[in-house]
Design a protein around this nucleic acid. Structure first.
Lengths: 240, 240
DNA sequence: AGGTGAATACTTGTATACAAGTATCCTAAC
DNA sequence: GTTAGGATACTTGTATACAAGTATTCACCT
């Protein structure tokens, strides 16, 4: 099976990290079906590594709630449409908290960084580097979140980030097949968020969040609700 | 050094789990100072186990933000008063979200469970079993959170829970030394929360949350702000 | 036939060995 | 005295070995 997660992001990564990234993608795309039982030995054989990195990977996936430990081995939990909604509950909760804090700060430096990221996103679209575009999207949000220097908010973010990353990656790949005008709209959404922050405009941020979230969430759910589409998303990378 | 974490909670636990529990307590009580560099070999020697469980422990502590990985070994981050405030930001955020959901549900079963927990807390106070009281306190909150069946909210909770557990454990032990009338007030706070849920009373829950949070947070911070008090909390268990 | 129990082939948790890389320290040259 | 360079003693990441425990299977007994 071809790797689902971009190799580019794994240079210098340990085998453990590679296994996590790959398993996560397979679980989320249902290339590994829910309820499948995974054991360390079996995975070690399949990935041609020892049990040590596999153990590490399974622990990470457990903490991300993608698998649940049972008496012997772990069983794949995967994610459903309901889970995706729930992830976006968390995002909305976290990002709203962050915006509230931004209102009482000077955000010039942040605004500058966000402008840079938007420019880079435009370049990524221009050259159809969808994976890069996805990572920039995520980094945009992470930059905002980190800017308030709230250790535990950052921690929350880092807990849901890996799954978010997969979701965005997949939904963007799918869009590319489907309708690449969508990328313009994604960029416009981010420009709206940027403007809200620059002007500390509470009404605008609510609009922006809901626009952005509904947009991404709908796309992701659309993707998940249709087995055929999921297959396209999986294969869009495998065929590369 | 005597164990800081109750042995009772570690029956059947793996060495890895024990090491995590113990290191977490030592870091939070500053028995291990911030900025200390910990390496796997050194800890393996100290705890008389191999590197495998130590590795596992350090990974867990990293995910909890109590240590941060560096090129060689991990360095202890620990928690400050600001961090404690931030943890309570998260709690307030999460528990408010949960209460909002509770308003649209039938909570009879939940209310029953909470009543049971409060009774048990009273017994724990009667027999001065402070560690048990602390765990019941935490379980009270966890029961509420789990009741809305929100996978990612539960995940967030499980990420901050271990540190919360230590904080509550320490603050309760300290109270016992200081003024054991406090326990009555903690119970009263929980009864207030219970009542808010039973009656779906939005105003009351805000009062209850703020009362409970301010109470615990103040106690904890009071504890942290004074080196001498921290020593008392540490030793209150060591002398057992 | 149905249930019991022992043998077997799994599983995880832990210890240990090894390779590759990095900081440190000591020596030597200037 | 100061700096360069190499030996040394660390570090982590990974592989492998072993012990203890659990599911399964299959034969045997009732």
């Amino acid at each position: 099976m071809k790797a689902l997660y971009p190799e580019k992001r794994l240079v210098n990564a340990s085998m453990g990290a590679r296994v996590v990234a790959e398993l996560r993608m397979r679980i989320i795309t249902k290339a590994i079906q829910d309820e499948t039982v995974l054991t360390e030995n079996q995975l070690a054989k399949e990935f041609q590594v020892s049990r040590s990195p596999i153990r590490e990977a399974l622990r990470t996936l457990t903490s991300e709630n993608l698998v649940r430990p049972e008496r012997m081995g772990v069983v794949v939990v995967g994610i459903s449409e309901k889970d995706i909604e729930e992830i976006y509950d968390i995002r909305l909760m976290v990002e709203s908290f962050v915006f509230e804090r931004l209102l009482h700060k000077d955000n010039d430096k942040l605004v500058g960084e966000l402008e840079k990221l938007i420019e880079m996103m435009k370049i990524a679209v221009k050259y159809k580097d969808i994976d890069e575009f996805s990572f920039l999207d995520l980094e945009f949000h992470e930059t905002i979140i980190r800017s308030i220097n709230h250790r535990y908010i950052s921690m929350l973010w880092s807990n849901i980030k890996p799954v978010m990353e997969c979701l965005i990656l997949l939904s963007m790949r799918y869009r590319l097949e489907e309708n690449d005008k969508d990328f313009e709209r994604v960029i416009a959404n981010h420009e709206l968020i940027l403007e809200s922050i620059a002007n500390k405009d509470t009404n605008l941020i609510n609009q922006a969040f809901h626009k952005n979230f509904n947009d991404v969430q709908n796309k992701v759910e659309q993707l998940w609700s249709n087995e055929e589409m999921m297959k396209i998303a999986r294969e869009s990378i495998e065929s590369k």
